[in-house]
């Protein structure tokens, strides 16, 4: 059945990424590895039945505590913030892997696709990957909050948008930072180094963020005037807490703000993400294509070098050194090309 190019690309990438067809054949047609399927069901069932009620109770207690001091918005703010932070930490690896190390790039680049189409589909895939985090850490608090406070229809509609866009901001920032950098740093060449470097960088960023946020909030709380202002206007604290992560404060205002303003906040929330996404695509389009071709150069260049090495030693066939063997072993493709 003929499908829209972009929809087909995204659905196929999702299918290939999660191995859906393979699992379907394995589980339901060949009846193989069924234990894996049931184990997964069992684990999720266990979590849902035994951990679920405890989690709901804890969340409910937290909401009550926040409500007692009129800061229920902070509960939602924290949920969005924590989910976003997870997205930042895990997303960085997913973005690098999806954009620079997956084999399907060789195939996609040979097809009549614009760089921004490939970029869009791949970033969508990263977002879906990260959405699992949102389903775990954001969806339950949002639902429990809605039920406990008897939220209206606008809350539930807004909730869907907040959930769907919850991982967009981290992915957008990562694309805006990583794709241009990749023009100067060959990620393909320094894969191992990059993983260590990024991990250290992330730890530094987390500590820095924690230090900044704690100091900022502590300073805010210590001021008597601001404490009074905070208690009389809880939105102020949300704005203050959320200024380090704008989607959180805007999202909260869209969820539980006052009157018609909520709709405007929701509009701003969507606009911010859509504009950010297009900007990330624009940056990626300007940098990614060349980066990918450079990555190809690296791969082909390495292959060429390895071939050259073999040719250099072809006159003395018994002088194969460890170095030769090492290079050959790293490039099994050479033998296939003979």
């Amino acid at each position: 059945m003929k499908q829209n190019k972009m929809i087909s690309l995204i659905l196929t990438l999702i299918n290939a990424h999660y191995g859906l067809s393979k699992k379907r054949v394995q589980y339901f047609k060949e009846k193989k590895r069924l234990w894996e399927f049931f184990l997964l069901l069992g684990v999720f069932g266990f979590l849902f039945i035994f951990i679920g009620p405890l989690f709901v109770k804890l969340q409910g207690m937290m909401i009550d505590q926040y409500r007692q001091v009129g800061l229920e918005g902070l509960f939602l703010n924290n949920a969005i913030l924590i989910t976003g932070m997870f997205g930042f930490f895990l997303g960085i690896y997913l973005v690098i892997n999806e954009f620079f190390f997956t084999k399907d790039l060789n195939l996609l680049m040979s097809l009549p696709l614009k760089p921004k189409e490939i970029l869009g589909a791949k970033s969508f895939l990263v977002m879906i990957d990260l959405l699992w985090i949102s389903l775990l850490f954001l969806l339950p608090p949002l639902v429990i909050f809605g039920v406990k406070t008897g939220a209206d229809i606008i809350y539930w509609i807004t909730m869907v948008f907040v959930l769907v866009f919850s991982q967009a901001f981290p992915v957008i920032i990562q694309m805006i930072v990583l794709l241009p950098i990749s023009r100067y740093i060959n990620f393909g060449k320094y894969k191992d180094f990059l993983i260590y470097f990024m991990s250290i960088l992330l730890v530094v960023v987390v500590i820095g963020f924690q230090f900044y946020a704690t100091n900022d909030l502590a300073g805010y709380q210590l001021s008597e005037e601001k404490m009074i202002e905070m208690l009389s206007n809880p939105q102020g604290l949300i704005s203050q807490a959320g200024k380090d992560y704008p989607p959180a404060s805007i999202g909260v205002k869209a969820l539980i703000g006052e009157g018609f303003q909520r709709v405007l906040w929701l509009f701003l929330f969507i606009l911010m993400h859509v504009t950010g996404f297009y900007f990330a695509l624009f940056i990626g389009e300007k940098t990614y294509y060349k980066t990918y071709l450079k990555f190809q150069d690296h791969y082909n260049g390495k292959e060429g070098k390895a071939n050259q090495l073999i040719f250099e030693h072809s006159s003395d066939r018994f002088s194969g050194t460890d170095c030769n063997l090492f290079v050959c072993n790293k490039q099994p493709g050479i033998s296939a090309n003979i």
């Binding site: 829209n4 299918n15 290939a16 067809s21 399907d104 195939l107 097809l111």
Partner: peptide
């Protein structure tokens, strides 16, 4: 290509349909 680059976890027919979609 000299070495077939395919999407390993798809069925053959799914892969062909995907390529057909790309070429409209």
């Amino acid at each position: 290509p000299d070495e077939a680059v395919l999407m390993e976890k798809l069925k053959g027919i799914e892969y062909l349909n995907f390529i057909a979609d790309m070429y409209q």
